[in-house]
């Protein structure tokens, strides 16, 4: 009986330790910008409620973003974004599931800035595509800051732009990721 308890306890300990390898946030910042020279106003949205989880042991990295969480300067633009472009009711979430390719080169226990390569599948508007981008992991004060910039072509994700506004909206949106991850307990 005792042995069993010890065994169980040690198993639980192992799992607990494993859990501490994971970092997460529910308040990650992801923004996009699709402004062109001909846009009458800035076309950008920011989402401050993105979910991000990183498993430092395996390098697995996942994001989940509620499309309705993107905030715009103009309410009308927000309506158009949700209703006409990304169809948020039909496709409420965008997700990224991938991994840090050079995970071994990041020393998560030592403060510093580590360049990383991230590869995985990105799902927006119901369409999944393979993407690869460069980013940074900044280890500081027991937290991880995951930062990346990349571009997404609207056409790749079946986001159609009416010809009337075609030159006022960029064909590729610049996406910025800035997530401060806490240890997952």
């Amino acid at each position: 009986m005792k042995k069993l308890f010890v065994f169980l306890a040690s198993i639980m300990l192992v799992f607990k330790m494993q859990a501490q390898d994971k970092y997460f946030t529910k308040a990650g910042k992801i923004s996009f910008d699709a402004t062109t020279a001909k846009s009458p106003e800035n076309i950008d949205g920011i989402n401050k409620t993105s979910i991000c989880v990183l498993d430092t042991k395996t390098g697995n990295l996942q994001f989940s973003v509620l499309m309705k969480g993107f905030e715009f300067e103009r309410a009308l633009m927000q309506e158009h974004f949700n209703e006409n472009y990304v169809e948020s009711n039909k496709f409420p979430k965008s997700e990224f599931k991938g991994a840090i390719l050079n995970n071994a080169s990041v020393n998560y226990s030592k403060e510093g800035t580590y360049p990383v390569k991230v590869k995985g599948s990105l799902t927006i508007h119901g369409v999944t595509k393979e993407v690869e981008t460069d980013g940074k992991i900044i280890v500081k004060g027991g937290k991880l800051n995951a930062v990346a910039d990349f571009s997404v072509a609207l056409a790749d994700y079946n986001i159609s732009v009416p010809s009337l506004v075609a030159d006022k909206l960029a064909k590729t949106a610049k996406i910025k990721v800035d997530c401060l991850l806490d240890p997952l307990k």
Binding site: I11, Q18, F24, I51, D55, Q62, L184
Partner: peptide, 18 residues
């Protein structure tokens, strides 16, 4: 059940927090 949980964890990290 632990094993199942561990398996799930590696597949879907998001379900841990979401």
């Amino acid at each position: 059940s632990f094993a199942a949980k561990a398996q799930q964890q590696s597949d879907d990290l998001l379900s841990l927090v979401d």
